[in-house]
């Protein structure tokens, strides 16, 4: 900001003492560029004051959406914080040294069967096989390591799985 602009602002805001204001008016009289600048600043000031008067009655309407957004954001932050804290609280309470584990276990045990697994991928497990007289080969295929039981059949020759592997 130039010294002229600063002086103009102080003059318009009435911050100049009387002698200084008198000297500034003399300078305005003999400086057309400074006078023009004063007029521009007065026009801008008028526009701002006009907007402020018009906006005064609608201030709530203008400010409400912003305030609402701010309030909602604060509530969301509190909810997120509370949720995160609740999770931390449960984890903390489940630590082995916490006697509150005993307190929480019944509730968790009741809920456990109701929970669905987060993901369904993974592999089943062949735990036992009795193949009788047939030759059985057990291996896995695919990205989910799907177990396969391949049984040789005497009725017709099939393909031998050999040493299969993914891909």
């Amino acid at each position: 900001m130039t010294s002229d602009s600063e002086s103009l602002l102080r003059y318009l805001d009435g911050e100049m003492a009387a002698p200084e204001a008198e000297r500034f008016r003399a300078r305005l009289a003999e400086t057309p560029a400074l006078r023009l600048k004063l007029l521009e600043m007065e026009r801008v000031g008028d526009l701002v004051r006009l907007w402020a008067r018009n906006a005064e009655g609608r201030s709530g309407e203008l400010l409400e959406p912003t305030l609402s957004r701010v309030a909602e954001e604060e509530k969301r932050s509190v909810r997120l914080f509370s949720g995160a804290f609740a999770v931390a609280l449960v984890l903390f309470a489940l630590l082995p040294w916490s006697s509150s584990t005993k307190f929480l276990q019944p509730a968790l045990a009741l809920r456990a069967p109701l929970r669905e697994p987060a993901t369904t991928v993974g592999s089943a497990a062949i735990e036992r096989i009795e193949s009788g007289a047939q030759h059985a080969t057990v291996f896995v295929v695919g990205r989910n390591a799907t177990p396969v039981v391949w049984l040789s059949d005497d009725l017709e020759p099939g393909v031998s799985p050999g040493a299969p592997g993914p891909g």
Partner: peptide, 24 residues
């Protein structure tokens, strides 16, 4: 005669297993 007398599998929802090789 038994072809596959017993196959015991442990699996969860969404998991698969395959029994192959019977001639047809």
């Amino acid at each position: 005669a038994d072809f596959l007398p017993l196959l015991e599998v442990r699996a969860r929802r969404g998991q698969s297993f395959i029994v192959a090789g019977q001639s047809y």
